[in-house]
Every structure is written in structure tokens, then in C-alpha cells.
Computed example of a mutant assay.
Amino acid sequence: MKLADVQSLRDNRNLPIDKVGVKNLRYPITLLDRTKKRQHTIATVNMYVLLPSDFKGTHMSRFIEVLNENRECIDIRKIGKILKQMREKLNARKSYIEFDFPYFIEKEAPVTKIKSLMSYDCKVEAFGDSHTEELFLNVEVPITSLCPCSKEISSYGAHNQRGVARIRAQLAEFVWIEELVEVAESSASCEIYSLLKRPDEKFVTEKAYNNPMFVEDIARNITLELSKDKRIPHFSVEVENFESIHNHNAYAFINR
């Protein structure tokens, strides 16, 4: 018995829908890893297409079919292929995809060299049609900042705090997640580690004290570094400090 395909029926209301698809799908994926070649993680996936005005609905199962075909390695150099598959399977002019996922980098403590894993929240956003495609890589990097004003006016000590640097980079060519993480960490008073022993704690405390930064300094430092990279034609930088002596956060944003 042939089953009715209700989604393919015509709609007479003459209203296209900008995005229609599946959202908040938890899915295992494999990513390129600069050090270990491959990394397995769990992503939250959003997949959409433009629905023409005369289509009643879309075929949700076809989004998952495309994801199934590509989950063995989500390579940002092949996102265009995934977008094209979505448009072809769903007979759509535009397609969109988003992957939110934790990415893990093994780091050595600065003195003891003990290795541990740091987690970074990342996101890949892409959209395209038959003529153009745009791809964005987002990273959220924990950082340490030490207040220059506090250091200048205090007889001893200075207040510091944990913060976060968020980079959203449009990619014209391939860029490693690790590269953006390194730009953010090197632009702060000190980077953050998941495991430190006492000699390491002494080192990072003194490094931050000798390298005071406002959120404005960190945002500008990151911007200067990213501006040198021809693979990144457009980017935004957001820095937020979770202040240790105020009842508010300090914030800076640059869009280039």
C-alpha cells in the first residue's frame, strides 16, 4: 500500500519559511584533531532549509539521513558538501547547519609537566545556496586576568579573576580549533589549566601578576593577532571577566 506524502502537498498561503528542520539533536561525531588526528565527541546539531511558499512541509527524516552519511568525520573543509546534500535531498534553495560540541585539548602544567584535558565549548555554523557558502568557527576559551588598576594602587597583591574569551571567526580557509584557542590564551594574563600542583600554581600566580590585563587589553590583543590571519576575513571577539571584587562582570566586544 502506498502511503500518503502529506509534506509534499501544495500550500496556498504563499508564505515561505526561512528555516525549517530539526533542532537540538544530540549526536556522536568525529572531528579532526591537530595532535591525535581524530577526536570523538557529542554534538548538539541544528539543521535547516528554506521552505518555499508552495511546500506544505519538509521531510525531517532526510536531515538525519544526511547526518548519518557524514558523521564519521565532520571536517569543516567538507561542510559545503553536507550543505549541498541537504539542498538536494530536500529540494531546497538554501541550507543551514550548526554543531555545538565540547572539544578537548591535552595540556601540560607549566612546571611539573603533568598532562590533563581541558574542555572548550565550540560551535561550527554554516549556510549556503548554489552560489555562496559561509562558514564560522566559534570557540569559548577560559582565561585568567589580573587587574592593572588593582596592582597599581595596592601596596601588595592585586585582584584577579577567571574570564572567558569568545571568538567567532569566518573561515576562508581551514583553521584548527587549537589555533584560535592559542590566540585567546596567549592574549590574557595567564591561561587556565585543569590540573596544577603547587609549583605550577606558583608559576601561574606570578605570571598573571607580571602580566596584568583589562578586558579591553585582552580583546585588543586577540583582535591584533586575528587581523594578521588572511584565512579569517571577518571575526568578532568577546571577552567577559567574572569579577572577584564586584557584583558585575566586566565586558568588551570587537567586531572586524
Results as ranks from 00 to 15, higher is better:
2 K>V: 06
4 A>P: 00
7 Q>I: 01
10 R>G: 00
10 R>Y: 03
10 R>F: 06
12 N>A: 05
16 P>L: 06
16 P>Y: 03
19 K>P: 01
22 V>Q: 05
22 V>N: 04
24 N>F: 13
25 L>K: 01
25 L>H: 04
28 P>C: 12
33 D>A: 09
34 R>Q: 05
36 K>L: 12
38 R>C: 03
39 Q>R: 02
39 Q>I: 08
43 A>G: 12
43 A>S: 14
45 V>M: 04
46 N>C: 12
48 Y>C: 07
48 Y>M: 05
49 V>K: 01
53 S>V: 04
55 F>M: 14
58 T>R: 00
60 M>V: 04
64 I>G: 02
65 E>A: 11
67 L>Y: 01
67 L>V: 00
68 N>V: 01
72 E>D: 13
77 R>Q: 15
77 R>V: 11
80 G>P: 03
81 K>D: 11
81 K>Q: 08
84 K>E: 08
84 K>N: 06
86 M>T: 00
89 K>H: 11
89 K>C: 09
90 L>G: 02
94 K>W: 13
94 K>A: 14
95 S>G: 11
96 Y>V: 10
97 I>Q: 03
99 F>S: 04
99 F>H: 05
102 P>V: 10
104 F>V: 01
107 K>I: 06
108 E>Q: 15
108 E>Y: 02
109 A>H: 02
110 P>D: 04
114 I>Y: 14
116 S>E: 10
121 D>V: 02
122 C>I: 08
122 C>D: 08
123 K>H: 03
134 E>G: 04
134 E>C: 08
138 N>F: 09
140 E>K: 11
143 I>F: 07
145 S>E: 05
150 S>P: 01
151 K>I: 09
153 I>G: 12
153 I>F: 13
153 I>N: 06
154 S>L: 07
155 S>P: 00
155 S>Y: 09
155 S>L: 06
158 A>D: 07
160 N>G: 15
161 Q>F: 07
162 R>W: 04
163 G>H: 13
165 A>K: 05
166 R>P: 01
166 R>H: 11
167 I>D: 07
172 A>G: 15
174 F>P: 01
179 E>P: 00
184 A>E: 07
188 A>G: 10
190 C>W: 09
191 E>W: 02
193 Y>P: 06
193 Y>R: 03
196 L>T: 05
197 K>Y: 15
197 K>P: 12
197 K>N: 15
197 K>G: 15
200 D>H: 05
203 F>N: 07
204 V>G: 10
205 T>D: 12
210 N>C: 08
211 N>Q: 06
213 M>N: 09
214 F>W: 14
220 R>F: 14
220 R>D: 08
221 N>R: 02
222 I>Y: 10
227 S>Q: 09
229 D>R: 15
234 H>Y: 15
234 H>G: 07
235 F>P: 00
236 S>D: 05
237 V>W: 00
238 E>G: 00
239 V>C: 11
239 V>F: 03
244 S>G: 02
245 I>R: 02
247 N>R: 06
248 H>E: 07
248 H>F: 05
252 A>R: 01
252 A>Y: 07
256 R>N: 14
